[in-house]
Simulated assay, not measured.
Amino acid sequence: MILIKRRLSVLALALLASLPFSQAAAAADQPTVIRIGSPELGTGDKGFSGANPLSVVRARGWLEEEFRKDNIQVEWTFFRGAGPAVNEALAAKQLDVVFLGDLASVIGRSRGLPTRLIAVTGRGSNSYLATAPGLTLNRFADLKGRKVAVLKGTAYQRPFDNLLAEAGLTEKDLRLVNMDWPTAKAAVLNKDVDATFGGADLHQLQAKGVGLPFNTKGKGPAFTIHAATLATDDFIRKYPEVTTRLVKQLVRASAWASDEANRQPLLALWGEASGQGPAVFTSEFEGEDLRLRHSPLIDEAALVAYKGVAADALKLGLIKTSVDVDAWVAPQFVAEAVRQLKLDKFWPELDANGKARR
């Protein structure tokens, strides 16, 4: 068996050596497949990463189009277990590129997952508390003693814990149930739990009597969510040019999603891609500046946001070791994509206070 493997290796090397230099270099510098992972936020059999530019890229088939001429396949996997499941797949070396909310990516980094943050893929997302039909809550503190579903290890856990702290509570004051999002939605609808905490897709349940009494809109950075695209160190080291091309399609989608003229087509695209309809996302983005929500830049504001998540995660006991955000990010890919697409002045670069630099 060892002899056979050696012969195959020799044959493979001989074949590579027989190619013209440019072809041999291309074969060595390109993967056969790019394995992309994301939390599952769609309905039914719809694979959907959420209301972000990555969903635009997938719906439009831009990565497949970009890499078709090189015979590079693009493989999408959506995880019902969300961030924790994506991190497990990363640890098992089953993924090359992932989309994750801020807390899940920070948790993975703190546990030694060899990733780099290569593009911001969503800023300032809000969260919502959904309550079972017939249940009235006047204050967030009224959750005390109640059965509440939260998917731990995801970006929603941090704003939820901060809302509890603001109300003078901790997770220990509730009967907290760790439950994935589809199961949690069914549970709150059936009154198996008193409430669940999650994203804009909870608006779907209002027509069935579920209430949405509290959300994080306008509450500031400690209560909103950033998301990013990460790539493994191994993938970036082996395929820097492919990484730039991938990020270029993300930046292209970010520009399209940032254009106010595309607001209705964007909502319609997300509604179709998710199987949830555009109305689910209308409230989330009402009054929001699309250009600020979809800037891919790894600017100072993004760094501050992730540092805040890392600090809160440590304080709340969600991670045990601190995360050096400055050493984690790899802004060169977005910078090059922005240059190639001539979008240098399209997004304002934000300072630590979220204000545009002059």
Score class of each variant (00 low, 15 high):
residue 27 A to E: 14
residue 262 N to L: 02
residue 35 R to H: 05
residue 316 L to T: 00
residue 159 P to R: 06
residue 58 R to G: 11
residue 138 N to L: 11
residue 316 L to M: 03
residue 142 D to K: 06
residue 328 W to M: 11
residue 215 N to Y: 09
residue 269 L to V: 01
residue 78 F to T: 04
residue 83 G to I: 08
residue 263 R to S: 11
residue 108 G to Q: 06
residue 175 R to T: 14
residue 16 L to V: 01
residue 221 P to R: 15
residue 232 T to M: 07
residue 25 A to Y: 11
residue 118 I to D: 09
residue 61 G to P: 05
residue 227 A to Y: 02
residue 194 D to R: 04
residue 151 L to Q: 15
residue 58 R to P: 02
residue 88 E to R: 09
residue 104 A to R: 03
residue 32 T to A: 13
residue 14 A to P: 00
residue 6 R to P: 00
residue 87 N to E: 08
residue 19 L to C: 15
residue 119 A to G: 03
residue 165 A to F: 05
residue 344 D to P: 00
residue 31 P to Y: 03
residue 106 V to N: 08
residue 130 A to Q: 02
residue 65 E to L: 03
residue 348 P to Q: 05
residue 129 L to G: 07
residue 84 P to I: 03
residue 354 G to M: 10
residue 260 E to T: 14
residue 133 P to M: 13
residue 310 A to E: 08
residue 261 A to T: 14
residue 5 K to F: 14
residue 42 G to P: 03
residue 221 P to N: 13
residue 102 D to V: 09
residue 289 D to F: 01
residue 30 Q to Y: 10
residue 134 G to A: 12
residue 336 E to T: 08
residue 250 L to M: 14
residue 116 R to I: 12
residue 200 A to V: 09
residue 148 V to Y: 07
residue 252 R to D: 12
residue 253 A to E: 08
residue 91 A to Q: 13
residue 225 I to A: 06
residue 203 H to Y: 15
residue 247 V to T: 10
residue 294 H to E: 00
residue 331 P to K: 12
residue 17 A to I: 10
residue 198 G to Y: 09
